[in-house]
Design a protein around this nucleic acid. Structure first.
Lengths: 225, 225, 225, 225
DNA sequence: AATGAATGAGATTTCATTCAT
DNA sequence: GATGAATGAAATCTCATTCAT
């Protein structure tokens, strides 16, 4: 019926490969069912090992969660920093490139599911919350803020409160990533839009706005903060 | 502001108030700790009753979750529909009004936390997923799409793929709501921006874009779908 | 076949009686099989409840052990102190009375088994070790030492190092108690002496010695310390 | 005194030394932590081998326990028998010599810890109980009883029930040995007596009694049984 | 022979749910 | 109805034992 049907489940020694296999299995299940609702031997079975083996590599389910998060984010940010520092050309292009890159590399990959786990669990794991803020949120925020500032200083972008604009910028990316791993994974009728196109439209709108002619908005006198 | 402090003599716990008290307690705890990690007698204690009493009203924790979700969304949408149908004036104003309204009435109220629960649990409760799509997502999407179409048809907005634009529009609202109930509730340093202002910046940017001068974007030749 | 044969194992509410029943069951099993080798649901079953109920009263097996020890020794020593303070007559009689009393009330009762548990487990539970020393060993040692000093000071006993003599005095009592709960409980042939008579012989020998005529012993010039 | 420090070049672990090293490691750990609470790879690590190697020599932890006990008692008794048979002189001296010898050779050596293990585990291992009775208790009891009888028959000792007197005689020896391996190994204040001196006082008291003048005891008309 | 990665039965503990009071 | 003591299925984690290398 499937791949491992006939051969006896002979015991395998794969010390090197095991951590990665376990982390992948754990990520998939934590994203699908949530951390608390995933039983530790489900993880083991999906990774093709026994319950005991899982505990040989990670001393508790909580440590496993931490390892999943760390492994997926180590050295993800550094890459983006290099791009920002070396880019020459219109800031709009740089911004669009960063956002498309994040979407390709994180948002629509398994690692994107980590956001879902984090949203659901941060309040139960303050230690992980701090780690995630320091290693992921903070550096990537800085990257985008630096880019916005570049645009404003070069006169390409209108003046803005950077922190808030940054959040408005990334919100649809993360939202789409969350969607893919929640509603998007359910067999529901009538939810058949294409996340990739949402990202493109978002980029377009962010840069150019909805209006055919710029309006003078009274309410939000936005200044670069 | 205080709930029921003055009027009720608080003599005996009123039977008819129980369901609401239980649902409120459950909502708060499910949002804070997640569904699986909330113990059913925590809910009971927070509602001021005993564990047994909880089961008198809801036959299982799962049914309680369903009731929490359903109760918080009954008749939330109808209100918006009336506004859209009767509004006269620039569509940009209508759109901004709808978004601010959602933020005030839902996003920054306890009900906003339901999104967090839904994200975390839909894949475990397909039944709820369908309900939520039918009762919440579908009608509010239609409302926004109708508004966008109004803008495009009146020549106020540039042509757009409605579905995708709609998602780009609501993403920061929902994202901020999720944030308030996850990272925003953790005592982390350096995450001290104001969600309300993010909403305002988002509205501003959505309408006018980042660029000082409109660019001709080649990549996304967005047409009204 | 037995007492609870026919009646359905109907759930009983016995909040008051439960702690004692659980402690008795735990004592018996810890003495018989040792602490580590006793499974917590064995304790529950012997007390006539379910595993869950045990944890309703004691939050862990270790806490259960502590409770067993404390409950069996609270106010056991005070009694002896009263006797020593009020006794008039030959110290030999007082000493014999104390020893026989201990044997009757502790050594040959279930509580005597606690010594066996303590011997086996002290090194794993330093906290309990301290408790036992403070509550049991220290006060009862003082009692015996006071008695020995009375004998020496009244010229009834030869001079002695009190601390060491005290240990020589109680050793057979405790040893017999340990024996009853270890070898004595095994179905072995040829170990059929009577512990009660050992105690009597010990008392006799302690007071009068083995020798028909007192010897002058060079080696141990024992002085009252 | 040092085991094998100078002679062996310690190049490769010698195969023939393994069993002894394993038994020593097991003895030390079983005495310290108890049988059930000692993990089998703790034993292996302490013996400087891997877990797998331990199972090459002993097929189960239970067999290891048996081996520990048996190995430590082989040919311990024979020695004593020779002494008793050949001794000439006062029986009191013989008795004192036997007791001091036991204390030196067994009680205060690692082998003394076996008593602790036996006390704790006999009821779980009936097979070992029988072995211990046959190989250790029975022969050494006989030795002491023979010595007591010699004393009584030569008119040196008062008439006694031999079996019971024998137990009264050895109790402090074993009790001190147990103490060294339980409470004595805990860092408790106020338990700082010297076991060696307890033994000496015990011998002194046993021979001469506490009383300055022999009393006529009515209660225990002890006759040689 | 020696190793230590892998296993899985079994232990402790939790908690949704039931039900006697 | 309301309570909370009682239950037991199920979850996490341990560790004696096995076996591929």
């Amino acid at each position: 019926m499937s791949k491992t049907s006939s051969a006896a489940p002979t015991r395998q020694r794969r010390k090197e490969a095991r951590p990665q296999e376990l982390l992948d299995a754990a990520l998939a299940l934590f994203v699908e069912k949530g951390f608390a609702a995933t039983r530790s031997d489900e993880v083991a079975v999906r990774a093709g090992v026994s319950k005991g083996t899982l505990y040989l590599y990670y001393p508790s389910k909580e440590e496993l969660l931490k390892a999943v998060i760390q492994q997926n984010y180590s050295g993800l940010i550094a890459e983006g920093a290099g791009i920002v520092d070396n880019f020459e050309g219109p800031t709009a292009e740089l911004l669009a490139m960063l956002m498309r890159m994040w979407w390709t590399r994180v948002g629509s990959s398994p690692a994107g599911g980590i956001h879902k786990i984090m949203m659901a669990e941060v309040r139960n794991f303050p230690e992980i919350a701090q780690f995630y803020r320091d290693e992921v949120i903070q550096p990537s925020s800085e990257l985008l803020i630096r880019t916005l500032r570049r645009g404003v200083e070069r006169g390409e972008f209108r003046p803005l409160p950077y922190e808030e604009a940054m959040h408005a910028l990334i919100a649809p990316l993360i939202f789409m990533s969350l969607h893919k791993n929640s509603f998007g994974a359910c067999p529901l009728e009538g939810m058949d839009f294409d996340p990739d196109r949402v990202i493109e439209v978002h980029i377009e709108l962010m840069l150019n706005g909805l209006l055919t002619k710029p309006a003078i908005t009274a309410k939000t006198t936005t200044k670069a903060s």
